[in-house]
Design a protein around this nucleic acid. Sequence first.
DNA 1: TTATTGTAGATTGGATCCAATATTGATAGG
DNA 2: CCTATCAATATTGGATCCAATCTACAATAA
Lengths: 228, 228
Amino acid sequence: MAKSDSLHHFQGIDVSQAGSASSIVFETLKQAIITGELKDGTPLKQEELAKKFSTSRIPIRESINRLEQEGLVKTIRYKGAVVASISLKEVEEMFDLRALMEREVMLKAVPNLTDDQIDEAEKYCHEFASAQTSGDWTDTNRKLHHALFQASDMTFHLSVLNTIYDRTERYLRAQLSFSNGADRAVEEHHTLIELCRARDAAGAAELMFQHVKHAKRSLLEFLPQDSE
Amino acid sequence: MAKSDSLHHFQGIDVSQAGSASSIVFETLKQAIITGELKDGTPLKQEELAKKFSTSRIPIRESINRLEQEGLVKTIRYKGAVVASISLKEVEEMFDLRALMEREVMLKAVPNLTDDQIDEAEKYCHEFASAQTSGDWTDTNRKLHHALFQASDMTFHLSVLNTIYDRTERYLRAQLSFSNGADRAVEEHHTLIELCRARDAAGAAELMFQHVKHAKRSLLEFLPQDSE
DNA sequence: TTATTGTAGATTGGATCCAATATTGATAGG
DNA sequence: CCTATCAATATTGGATCCAATCTACAATAA
């Protein structure tokens, strides 16, 4: 009963009102993992979740399958599923890839950016600067990046970037709960907006690259723990 | 009965001997889609597949879910699943990303390559040159690239690359059935091996980049059809 | 005491049944 | 002849039941 109380968040969530049960469970669990509500290693027991969501185990199983395919959980046959942890090496890789990809995306996006889009990005830029909780921080950060990326029309790149964001967000949140290492990011974001307004694609792309590399470095300083 | 005969390949495949039913069905379907045995738009009917695999619909549904998460099928609620097609724009994007990533991977791999690994790659290089069917071609091509990539120890990058290979292979096969545009590739592969032996990481990386860009170009020449 | 074995409980994997929805074809009206 | 509506069928989504496997703990023997 009190054995595993880490899923108390889902109290009262019911499925019988919108889309398919599977997709609701999937989105809810995914969000809980991304935000860190469900910590690394938390076992996801089908029966338990079925009760929380007031459904049978079928939609739960489908959700867990999909989550595993996205790399967010890891299951062992007849043993069960747990929230997947991520190694330091993988974090590094993901940030390196982010840097590489976001540079390319910016290169294509900047020439297509409308003034409205830049205004929107700047709005998020300010929200970002005044964000208080780590949740607000990551949310506005994602919105800001996304607003700039939209103009690139590189849907596949963006989908890959999204999975990287999904899989690293909880670690970013953890970092930001401790340090307030967002100062440099705020500065870089403002400069980024300026470069976009000037339609300096190469400059914006290069700054984005460095921006992500900086984020990687400050995150790694805060993850000296295990490596799995 | 003769209505949809595009799944006749699975005759006799039975599930009751190895891993979980789900994973067997998943791998089999995935391979069939990758190779092009199941063409774009082919509907995947659960009952029909359940009979072919001698199981219930449950493992079929799980497989389809996982395939959808990998982008290989597309399902509509209460309507069914079909083999996902891919737009020209996505093909372009995937090859651009491949070029970008494989350059980075080579940059890290070359200094770590052992002589044995290079020998292995060269073996595939020769197999590739003498491959007859489009299946042999893509197989050895993948093996060759993979052999070189292993030394990079960039597991996440490789997983992304694998999904790109998975989602584009059938189009490459189709191309190679028509043209024999592999001549240039053979040449580039040999040069690539030379550069690896010389431990010229920058050179190998740059050649790999161009190699993928060339592949992209010759593929696009053969896909002037629809765009969806 | 310690290692081993066996049994009971818990948990996941798969099969079958029912519910919800879409598709198709027939029929009636214009 | 064409169109619209409605019933019949096909197909997917979800619930419940059974099977297979793992885990924990106790009993027994060295």
